[in-house]
């Protein structure tokens, strides 16, 4: 029971991380109709900038700020230099051009920082564990990530439901052409939305550093899971991204924790763990395929 509780928290923490990525990706798709594979690169850039700054200055918070700034600035630059030209294009063109951006970003980071992973430590006030229920310590830092993620979700809800930008975002997601026709400076809106998404990706990357190792290629691994999330949630829907993130985080973590054990009854430990790991990695894709076949537009479809 206690073990299950801990695994549920692990699932939630992974889900929150996915949400930080998915929110930006799904907004960009919803409003600009762009599939941006390079979103994972912004996550990697955030992680590297944060870890490097933290190594240089010794300050976790400065690192966090640097991660956000680097991802935000480079994100906006990327939008203005390349992605802007892809908005009206076929999805295939978008996939390929942003695939090219991934290759470039990975190599640029490898040249700057080398191929060895960077390590970022935790500040004392976030290290260690707290007892969530008596006798069950849980890493404080992972709890902090959950809190940040939920705060971002609440903030995004406020932004989208109650502000003028939010109104434009909602309008843009459902009637893209109309918003432009209303005389809104659509280019500026696009850049702003993209910048917000980049900022969130940078935040996710910066938060990841102390948990995992910061290395080239880290962006693609979370990118694929993020796409699963937004496809399940319904492309363009932030609400769907939240639901999809938690669902994918839970399914992935629980499958990973319990499938091998279930298989051990029938085969050797090494084989059971390999099969369990493989099947649990497949789980989210099976989930996505099932959702797509059942509701091709995802759980929370946006476009009418």
């Amino acid at each position: 029971m206690i073990l299950l509780l801990e695994q549920l928290l692990n699932g939630l923490q992974y889900g929150v991380m996915l949400f930080l990525m998915a929110a930006g990706l799904t907004l960009v798709f919803g409003i600009m109709g762009l599939i941006n594979l390079a979103h994972g690169s912004l996550y990697m850039i955030g992680a590297y900038a944060a870890a490097w700054t933290q190594q240089q200055t010794g300050s976790f918070l400065l690192g966090l700020a640097a991660g956000l700034a680097a991802a935000g600035v480079l994100g906006v630059a990327l939008e203005m230099a390349i992605l802007r030209r892809l908005y009206g294009r076929a999805h295939l063109d978008q996939v390929l051009a942003t695939f090219g951006v991934i290759l470039f970003a990975n190599e640029a980071v490898a040249m700057l920082f080398g191929r060895q992973p960077l390590m970022a430590g935790l500040p004392r006030w976030l290290a260690g564990a707290v007892e969530i229920v008596p006798g069950v310590p849980y890493p404080l830092y992972r709890l902090a990530i959950i809190a940040v993620g939920l705060a971002v979700a609440a903030g995004l809800y406020g932004l989208i439901a109650h502000t003028r930008i939010g109104m434009l975002v909602r309008a843009g997601a459902t009637h893209r052409a109309l918003v432009g026709a209303l005389g809104v400076r659509i280019g500026l809106l696009f850049t702003a939305v993209f910048g917000l998404g980049a900022l969130l990706a940078g935040l996710a990357g910066a938060l990841t550093g102390p948990l995992l190792s910061v290395q080239v290629g880290m962006g693609e691994r979370i990118l694929i899971a993020t796409f699963v999330v937004i496809v399940i949630g319904g492309l363009g829907s932030v609400r769907g991204a939240l639901a999809g993130s938690v669902l994918v985080g839970m399914v992935d973590t629980l499958a990973r924790a319990y499938l091998p054990g279930a298989l051990r009854g029938v085969m050797a430990a090494a084989d059971a763990d390999a099969l369990g790991a493989g099947l649990s990695s497949m789980a989210i894709f099976i989930l996505m395929a099932a959702v797509l076949l059942w509701r091709p537009r995802g759980l929370f479809p946006t476009h009418g």
Binding site: L92, V95, L235, S281
Partner: peptide, 27 residues
């Protein structure tokens, strides 16, 4: 049964399933 971006994603999903299947097959 899907089109557009959903088609891109569902073909990716099936490919990933096979990828992990072969990762899993220790035999």
């Amino acid at each position: 049964r899907t089109t557009g971006i959903s088609f891109i994603m569902i073909t990716l999903a099936f490919a990933q399933m096979f990828f992990f299947l072969f990762v899993a097959l220790k035999a």
